[in-house]
Design a protein around this nucleic acid. Structure first.
Lengths: 378, 378
DNA sequence: GTTAAAACTGAATCAACAC
DNA sequence: TGTGTTGATTCAGTTTTAA
């Protein structure tokens, strides 16, 4: 492995700010991502999220014990001649990301053991500085049908800044709020993308073999971007990054060489609705720190940011925000704090105080917590 | 318990078996691990467990919010001045492991995001074949005191064989038993090593900065070695690998250049008691049990020639013939072949597919195989 | 229409032996 | 070294079909 440290860690002069009007915002660039990124100016992107080919190197067919056939990832885009050619490809697209990222921008890459060690070593060689590696634990991974290894139940994400001295962005407080006032850890638990969220083509087949769950992108973007930031996804696929960026009020640019994927992604993002301004305001200061497990319920989509919650007698109503805090007029904070202040009570259990409407019924938000617990039991 | 495996495909000639008496079993070799491993013969080791320096590159001291000092890893042995020198070191010790490992041997390495990407890429470059990466989730990680990143709550282990075609050893059944009859996943949850397990020096300070929990080694050795196997740990430290190897009835060899660590490890392993023979017996998979021909079960009279067998739903029926073949209309052949053809399936396990009636009960013919095995035990 | 059972599915480097 | 035979092996879901 050769050392190719290029980018300087410390900038000597302030960069010329890029005019957003000069960027292809909310567009999917056609073609190879390396060529497509060349059309972007230097230092114009706040965050890159990349889900590159994993170079799986699969052998023959695989059947389940019941005899059914496993639909493997055998697409042409995942075939490489050797580690050498995979490395060259990886170095090329990562170097281009490095160029288009702002000095204080950051990069996320997701992969599996097949490719992530190559990606991690190369991005270190290029001068990226790893901030964390994150483990996505799958609640429902595919088993190892032959009983030959441990169930491959996770994928790995690397979060890296432009360099050791880079002033990357991290919404520490929003993450802590989302995680019931405990620091967000480096292991995240989500189900794989399936059910209604999984996009299908006209024939009912999955539109893309490796579509990522929205909850994963939701947490990534909420943690490491601000409203209005520009997010680039060089391997756009069906556009999960674009959809969540739009939902969270971030700008996005995609690169995708397959016309079918571009078509699906365009339609998907078109349908996506941005959240309300108030729902997007995340907790910024320690003074207003909420005390909630509520954030995880919001993240899981059981309660939507922007939706209205109210007490049983509808004396007060509040709005749910993206990080699990709630807002009621000038008041904001956790479900418990806001309920307590409104009632001028010594304490308040927000779970039973607040209600929401679902299918014509009024339920305490505790019902949504129940659903969440059911869905996320270990 | 003898191993039933034969010579691997990658081997062109049968290697001369190494006499265990020629190996420094139950010894800690003094000095640099690369030099120490050079004294070991080729193809003599069943498993390597390596916990190499992490190349942490910590800048300056770290204090907790209350001002107390964090005793970080700042030892001289963990200092490398560049990725290049760390890579060269890594390549050297991994290559030596490759040489001393048997063709069907395997390697474990543990690391964090600081070093694991370099280790993973280099071991792939050397020809090791990654079988799984395993995430050790810490129940009690050190928090991120500055609130600048996600809590670094895990470490990563890579499990790799000598090559793609290598017949590595995996105690699938034992792992499934250990995990309440569900396949063991690639994410393992353990507390960090603390309390009584954490070794202290005479002054009461921790004897080693990165002592690993015994539960981690217990699972590694139980999963990928057999009783009597030889385990090498090139970075022995306080000897967790040796202690657990002794406990589980495995042989061990360590390398350690710090005299203080050797001393602590020696005393520790001395105190360790091996488990009883009976406690060491693990669940065996079908694969490792002797193979039984259907004809032998017929021959033994457990199933009679001429009797009828059928699938569970009685969609098909067949007749048992004296030579252990079965007949279904114009079709005839082995229990597996006929079942496969009838179902038009990619394969069929005749033992579980076919059933018979005995004493008013319907049982799979596998039950008759079980009786045969019982009857033929000494 | 309601409920239970069966079928289907997911980034997977997924067998070993005899001839 | 290749080819054919034996036979070992699955978890958490969602969707479809049957009762």
């Amino acid at each position: 492995m050769t050392k190719l440290r290029t980018a300087p860690r410390i900038r000597t002069k302030k960069p010329v700010p890029v005019d957003k009007a000069d960027l292809p915002l909310r567009q999917i660039l056609d073609g190879d991502c390396i060529a497509a990124m060349r059309s972007l100016p230097d230092a114009s992107i706040d965050l890159v999220f990349a889900d590159p080919p994993y170079n799986l190197q699969l052998g023959g067919d695989l059947n389940r014990p019941d005899g059914s056939h496993v639909d493997a990832v055998t697409d042409e885009w995942d075939r490489f001649d050797s580690f050498g050619s995979y490395d060259a490809f990886t170095r090329a697209w990562l170097a281009e990301c490095q160029r288009v990222l702002k000095p204080d921008g950051a990069l996320w890459v997701i992969g599996s053991y097949h490719n992530i060690y190559r990606v991690g070593a190369i991005l270190q060689d290029l001068g990226f500085w790893i901030l964390n590696d994150i483990v996505w634990r799958k609640t429902n991974p595919m088993p190892n049908f032959r009983g030959t290894r441990f169930t491959n139940a996770h994928e790995t994400l690397i979060w890296a800044s432009q360099g050791e001295k880079s002033r990357y962005h991290f919404n520490y407080r929003a993450m802590k709020t989302l995680n019931d006032e405990i620091q967000m850890r480096s292991d995240w638990t989500f189900p794989i993308c399936s059910g209604g969220e999984r996009l299908k083509d006209d024939a009912g087949h999955k539109a893309h073999p490796t579509q990522k769950p929205e909850a994963l992108l939701y947490r990534v973007l909420l943690a490491t971007t601000e409203k209005g930031d520009i997010v680039l996804d060089p391997f756009f696929g069906t556009g999960t990054t674009g959809a969540i960026a739009k939902r969270l009020g971030r700008e996005w640019i995609g690169c995708e060489r397959e016309a079918d994927y571009r078509k699906v992604a365009t339609a998907r993002i078109e349908k996506e609705l941005p959240l309300d301004e108030s729902a997007l305001t995340t907790m910024q200061s320690r003074k207003t720190q909420p005390r909630v497990a509520f954030g995880a319920v919001v993240e899981a989509g059981l309660l939507k940011p922007g939706m209205e919650i109210f007490d049983k007698k509808r004396r007060w109503k509040a709005t749910v925000r993206a990080d699990g805090s709630v807002e009621c007029g000038a008041l904001s904070g956790s479900i418990h704090q806001v309920g307590k202040t409104l009632q001028d009570a010594p304490s308040c259990n927000g779970w039973t105080f607040w209600h929401y409407e679902s299918g014509g019924e009024v339920k305490p938000i505790d019902a949504a917590r129940g659903l969440y617990l059911l869905a996320s039991e270990d």
